[in-house]
């Protein structure tokens, strides 16, 4: 996935953003919650991308979302808290169904039916791009950049996004 590896780093500059991936060596639920908690603790702003690894680029991109706004210096709205909102709470134990597929609780738009988006957990991945300087590289810019790259250059509109 060229865009989320070299291309985004080259465009925005390695000093300005960091890329982090949930699933480098196979999906495990414990790593998933660790990934969420780590992002909550770091309180970073940026974008998160849900990826269905069973599909080829660009159809593997399920959703691109943002956490934080350049104008607001709020504390709570970060990559960890925003990502967590798409899944059932940890104690409900409903992250994966009986067929080893990821269960989404909801997406931002009521038009998107979460029950119809259920990638296999084996190859499910989350990629985050966090900003090191929100006044220069804002989450809004990162989100719009990636959605435009997907739609305008790759003719692809992510399944769970609702406006570009």
């Amino acid at each position: 996935m060229k865009i989320l590896n070299n291309e985004i780093l080259k465009t925005f500059g390695e000093d300005n953003i960091n890329i982090s991936k949930l699933n480098e060596h196979g999906f495990k639920e414990v790593y998933f919650w660790k990934f969420i908690d780590q992002h909550k603790n770091e309180n970073k702003k940026g974008i998160y991308v849900f990826v269905d690894g069973d599909k080829e680029f660009p159809k593997n991109i399920i959703y691109v979302g943002k956490a934080g706004e350049s104008k607001k210096k709020e504390e709570g709205n970060n990559l960890g808290s925003r990502m967590q909102g798409y899944f059932f709470a940890k104690e409900k134990d409903r992250l994966i169904d009986s067929q080893d597929r990821i269960i989404f609780e909801k997406f931002n738009s009521p038009i998107i039916d979460p029950s119809k988006i259920n990638p296999s957990s084996k190859n499910f991945n989350i990629i985050t791009v966090s900003t090191n300087n929100i006044d220069l590289v804002s989450p809004e810019l990162l989100e719009s950049y990636l959605l435009n790259k997907l739609y305008k250059e790759n003719k692809y509109y992510p399944l769970a996004n609702n406006e570009i």
Partner: peptide, 18 residues
């Protein structure tokens, strides 16, 4: 156009914010 109005707005806002 090769990009959307929302993207160009972000570009303009970023350039102005620096």
């Amino acid at each position: 156009s090769p990009y959307t109005p929302s993207f160009f707005k972000q570009i303009i806002d970023t350039a102005a914010r620096k």
